[in-house]
């Protein structure tokens, strides 16, 4: 995975809570067997209804999505993070994320950043008034910075390290092969096997 240190760019606001992954990428687009090519289907149903905020010209090319609480709830589909990445988002800022979605973001190299409700509100108001407002999401400094503000965010230290260094998590786990093999010899004898 490519290292992710900071994301700098314009924001796009999606001022809604409880946005579920069925909205982010509807199920009819989960049949592809690739990890890319989901961009055209991001928020497909909402876009099809017209006047969708992310389709406004002024938000085209935004790299930071600012949105409401419990973003990414529901289905575990990683296609949701793939689709967000495919259209150019590199960071998402929200008051909270669903657990599986946040894990998927990190695996996809998307910065899922949690800020208090009031600070997220400030960002949404800011970009709603001035679409050209830029922010920097700095993973190294753990800050979201813009003109006249700097917000500190907390993030799991290990996830941060993996993102900063672009680590292959499978390789990290494989380093513990001996420990895993030892654990395997101690498993209860009644545990099921399938072949």
């Amino acid at each position: 995975m490519e290292p992710v240190r900071r994301v700098a760019g314009r924001m796009a606001p999606l001022d809604l809570a409880d946005v579920d992954t069925d909205q982010i990428i509807p199920k009819q687009f989960l049949k592809r067997i690739e990890r890319t090519g989901y961009g055209p289907f991001l928020f497909y149903d909402w876009r099809a209804r017209g006047n969708f905020v992310l389709d406004r010209a002024e938000y085209s090319g935004a790299s930071v999505l600012v949105t409401g609480a419990n973003f990414g709830c529901g289905s575990s589909r990683e296609h949701a993070t793939w689709a967000l990445r495919d259209v150019g988002f590199r960071a998402i800022i929200a008051p909270s994320f669903a657990d599986i979605f946040r894990a998927n973001c990190y695996k996809t190299g998307l910065l899922a950043v949690t800020l208090p409700e009031s600070q997220v509100r400030h960002l949404i108001d800011l970009v709603s008034e001035d679409a050209s407002a830029e922010v920097t999401v700095d993973l190294e400094a753990q800050q979201v910075r813009g003109d006249g503000f700097s917000y500190r965010f907390e993030i799991d230290a290990f996830a941060r390290e993996c993102l900063l260094r672009g680590l292959d998590e499978i390789a990290l786990v494989e380093r513990h092969e001996t420990t895993i093999a030892t654990y395997e010899t101690h498993r209860a004898p009644w545990l099921p096997t399938v072949n």
């Binding site: 990890r35 575990s76 589909r77 990683e78 296609h79 993070t81 599986i100 894990a103 998927n104 695996k107 996809t108 998590e169 499978i170 786990v173």
Partner: peptide
């Protein structure tokens, strides 16, 4: 618990 596709690979 449920996991994403990258975790399935892991």
């Amino acid at each position: 618990f449920g996991i994403g596709t990258s975790e399935v690979e892991l």
